[in-house]
Simulated assay, not measured.
Amino acid sequence: MGRVRSRKFCCCLPVRFGVFCSSLIGIVAGGFFSIVLWIEVHKISTGQILLSAPTNIVIWIAAFSFTFMLFDALLGMIGCLFRFRRFVNGYAASLVFDTLFNISIGSFFLFQLFHQDGADEVTKCVDGTTGDVGDVKNWACQKGFDVLRIVVVVLFVILWLFEIAGCFIVYDYVGQLRDEQEAEQALSMPQQQIAVSAPYPATTYRTPTYGGPGDMEAGKSPYTFTAPANAYGSI
């Protein structure tokens, strides 16, 4: 393999290590959240929990998304460990698609989260407490719900930033693999050119000339019937 300078991210870390970490995080996160979400999908399908139609749709789509992330990360891990450029290319393209998809789904989820007052959640939190204690608990539950929404926003933003950074790192590693392939081809190019452009052994062809008694002295084969002894009319 040709010698190519390893590309870095965060000033000193090789991009191959970044792809390994990105795919490892994708395997862990994708596996965990896909299991959790598919359990929720099962509960929704069997009627164990009742949610609004938009929330059900989000859960279904998120379950497929994290399952796709799991298999995509496995593809990236194999490509990173064995330097399979096609696998890393597929992982890079899938990671971009998955990032855009997660941003879309997360934005829709945040929209739903901030456009509902959380009355049901607050009521469950208060749990029938009345009087002054109920008012205090209601205030605490309402404030807790507001803080929860802010925390969810921060977590989503951090996740999106990590995914965007991962896209740049993976594509940088794709460029490094391309440079290594070109360097390897450049090293093998001179040998191929020598094998193709090597001159064939020179072969000298002599065109025989005929006609005259001087041909014998010149070391050339004369035409038989031009000799004086074989001439027409000779005895």
Results as ranks from 00 to 15, higher is better:
L110C: 00
L113Q: 03
K143W: 15
Q112N: 02
V126C: 02
I150F: 09
G131Y: 13
H115K: 01
G131V: 01
S104Q: 02
S107H: 08
V157L: 11
V136Q: 05
K143E: 11
V136N: 14
E121R: 14
I103K: 04
G131Q: 10
Q112D: 04
E163M: 12
Q116G: 02
F109K: 10
I103P: 10
I150G: 15
L161H: 07
N102A: 15
W139F: 11
F156I: 01
G128S: 14
L161W: 12
F114H: 02
V126G: 00
C167R: 04
N138T: 09
A119F: 00
S104L: 05
F114P: 03
V136I: 13
L113R: 11
I105F: 07
S107K: 14
F109I: 15
G131F: 05
D127Y: 08
A140N: 06
T123N: 06
K137G: 08
G131P: 03
F111V: 08
E121M: 08
S107D: 04
F114C: 00
F156P: 03
E163W: 08
E163P: 03
D146R: 06
W160C: 08
T130P: 04
E121G: 11
F162T: 06
I103D: 10
C167A: 15
V147Q: 11
E163S: 14
V122Y: 11
V153H: 09
A140S: 04
Q116M: 04
T123R: 12
T129A: 02
S107Y: 04
Q116R: 01
C125E: 09
G134Y: 12
S104N: 02
C167V: 02
K137I: 10
D120I: 05
G144C: 15
D117C: 13
F111T: 07
T130M: 15
G166R: 13
F109A: 10
K143V: 13
S104C: 07
G134H: 11
S107C: 11
V147S: 11
Q142P: 02
Q116K: 02
T129C: 14
D117K: 10
F108I: 15
K124I: 09
T123E: 08
E121T: 04
V147F: 07
L155Y: 11
D132R: 02
L148A: 05
G166H: 00
V157T: 12
L161F: 10
